[in-house]
Design a protein around this nucleic acid. Structure first.
Lengths: 328, 328
DNA sequence: CTGTTAGCGCTTTCAC
DNA sequence: GTGAAAGCGCTAACAG
């Protein structure tokens, strides 16, 4: 740690290394030609001076942007208060910090698919992480947005997707319920406009079909209140249901509560399982059986892909593992 | 919305308004002199061109930074995964978005008070929000950091504090417990090194003293596990305790669970109350009695103070209100 | 009140 | 492989 009166600039580094600023820039950014001896001298000078590049200057010169935007679709700006969104934001802001940039959080009105494209036009934004995008929003992206957008949820030809493997996670949960003797398993999903839960729904259909048991599906919205209503709904329509799997712990906890209130014993009469493994899943009584969701790793992966601008596989799935607790 | 081949720059605006760039800059930023007629012309030109200032250029010229940093003290970087920290980050990133900047999240090792000062040196950072700072960290700040740091927690002569009014919140909770007949109320606080909970502790001491009831205090760390252990500890040391108040819903839920496991009836034998009103406080059985904590408003207030660089009162308290549920 | 003139710190042609 | 020079878009003296 070298103390400097004012922050060292590239000019200082170049001077100390006895080269021009242009050379110093190339050597440091490893872009363009540079002899290895020069590179070493420049690197040494930079370290000696405690040189840290000025992101604003770099952004201005390269038009690369100064922050990574997180965009979340929803009916109201209220989605920005969701704990899941908060986790994504914190993880992104941590990754961003290590690259000397920031993260900003934006609401995308659900019925304005052009909003995402508009964000992508903003040259001050290095890249965008779209959380739970819809197909129309993705389709409205101009080609120029390629490599500038990554999705946590479904992707598209141009937008790589980083997501939890909710198909396998779902399969594991359903198989666990089947293995413990459940035969009439109902599922509560996310909002119907949310495409990224479709894979989970298919996995559920397949798992129940394979077992020769019925499929019973009710959409939710990831809130506890709606989860409770969905559970009541399920028990009315299919009174012999012996397990409820909700895609989201919050909904599952809401379901758990509703069942209990209606005098249904959990897990005696009906098993309940969730998805996400939130901190609170371990605190309910009975504890909530669920599947993990590595949000932090997913957000970090998406952010890194965006910032590194390196070619990336179109679909990256992060594994989800079963967590068995008392509820089912 | 006007479509432009390339983004309009200040030069375009100035040209269209028939003034110099300097004048356009003054007119738009409302800094420095400018006749109102000029101002109007410039504003109109800017709107017509759909002009949006380039934050990177502005940051470079003014050295004002491109992001707001959130710094959280803790023993390990694990504190960055805390849901409370995530809420603060999301709220800050939202406020930042409206100012075209970003937010980054940083861990401050607890025993390196200089880490905060070092962050404050970074000229790419517009301002810092310190979450739960310690006195040594604040004391280590150079004078040059004035107006660049705001605290969510304790402040100092130079650092304004934005915090929930946990003294009043605590008083309300304790008075509620007293009003419902509790007489031996114990309190679980945060870590002992965390100064921002002291006010709450004093309020607790005062409220119990006023009522002529004993004070029973055990430190915690805001986690559920520790809350559970603290509750067990309390019941061992003071078996006649009839209420436990935890400064943090997570701890309260942990306490609730531990009591239940030990066969203690809640609220029959012992009432339990928390603080924060997390989403999950409403989902436990019995529901958790608690006090609200307007994290989003606090973070937005701190961020705005930092970005506006306007004089700010040293201490801003956000009100906390009692939420009575089944646990006490 | 307004225009001119220098930068802010970095990258990037384009010669050499 | 390296250097000179021209910006990126904006603000801040300093004259007038």
């Amino acid at each position: 740690m070298v103390e400097q009166r004012r922050e060292a600039t590239l000019a200082d580094v170049a001077r100390r290394a006895g080269v021009s600023m242009a050379t110093a820039s190339r050597a440091l950014s490893a872009r363009g030609p540079a002899s290895s001896s020069t590179r070493d001298r420049v690197t040494a000078a930079a370290r000696a001076l405690g040189y840290v590049p000025n992101p604003a200057a770099r952004a201005l010169a390269t038009r690369s942007g100064t922050r990574i935007a997180i965009a979340v679709g929803g009916h109201t700006a209220h989605v920005l208060n969701d704990p899941y969104v908060a986790r994504v934001t914190a993880a992104t802001a941590t990754t961003a910090a290590s690259r000397e940039i920031g993260a900003s959080l934006h609401w995308l009105p659900l019925h304005t698919p052009a909003a995402l494209a508009e964000l992508a036009e903003n040259r001050d934004i290095s890249g965008i992480i779209v959380v739970n995008p819809t197909e129309p929003a993705l389709a409205a992206l101009p080609r120029s947005a390629r490599r500038r957008v990554a999705a946590i949820g479904i992707g598209s030809r141009d937008v790589p997707s980083f997501d939890v493997d909710n198909a396998t996670g779902t399969t594991r949960v359903v198989e666990h319920l089947l293995a413990t003797g459940r035969r009439r398993i109902a599922m509560i999903t996310g909002p119907e406009w949310l495409p990224c839960t479709r894979r989970a729904l298919s996995a559920y259909h397949r798992a129940t079909a394979d077992a020769g048991t019925p499929s019973r599906h009710v959409p939710g919205d990831f809130t506890a209140a709606r989860g409770g209503r969905a559970a009541a709904d399920i028990m009315t329509r299919w009174p012999d249901t012996d397990a409820i799997f909700a895609l989201g712990d919050l909904s599952a906890l809401g379901a758990l509560d509703a069942l209990r209130r209606d005098g249904v014993d959990v897990p005696g009469d009906v098993a309940v399982a969730g998805f996400d493994d939130l901190a609170f899943a371990a605190l309910s009584r009975p504890g909530l059986t669920t599947a993990t969701h590595p949000v932090e790793a997913i957000a970090a992966g998406a952010a890194a892909a965006l910032l590194d601008r390196r070619p990336v596989v179109p679909l990256t799935f992060y594994p989800s593992t079963l967590v068995v607790r008392g509820s089912g």
